[in-house]
């Protein structure tokens, strides 16, 4: 019972936006909104871009090794 009450209190607290304050910049829609948008896009895309770059490099290396493994026996025969 007390656990359920505690959970309900936590849920209520979590759903009260006035209590949970975000950073001051995010709360102000008028000032620096363009910069906020640019920064949000930048920070969202940066990890994805880096992961894509790392994945692309790993794929390129794997492809390079595969081609080498195919080509070497042919080269040794000549």
């Amino acid at each position: 019972m007390s656990r359920a009450l505690g959970l309900a209190a936590l849920a209520l607290l979590g759903s009260a936006p006035g209590v949970a304050r975000a950073c001051s910049t995010c709360m102000d829609p008028t000032e620096g909104s363009r910069t906020l948008l640019v920064v949000t896009i930048f920070l969202s895309l940066l990890p994805i871009g880096m992961l894509a770059g790392i994945g692309g490099y790993a794929w390129w290396r794997a492809e390079q090794m595969r081609r080498l493994a195919v080509a070497l026996p042919l080269l040794e025969r000549t």
Partner: peptide, 21 residues
């Protein structure tokens, strides 16, 4: 390096936002 890039990106973004405000 991935973590470090995000670390500095966060600080530099904060710096830009404070300056813009």
């Amino acid at each position: 390096v991935f973590c470090e890039v995000m670390f500095f990106a966060g600080f530099l973004s904060g710096f830009s936002l404070i300056g813009a405000r």
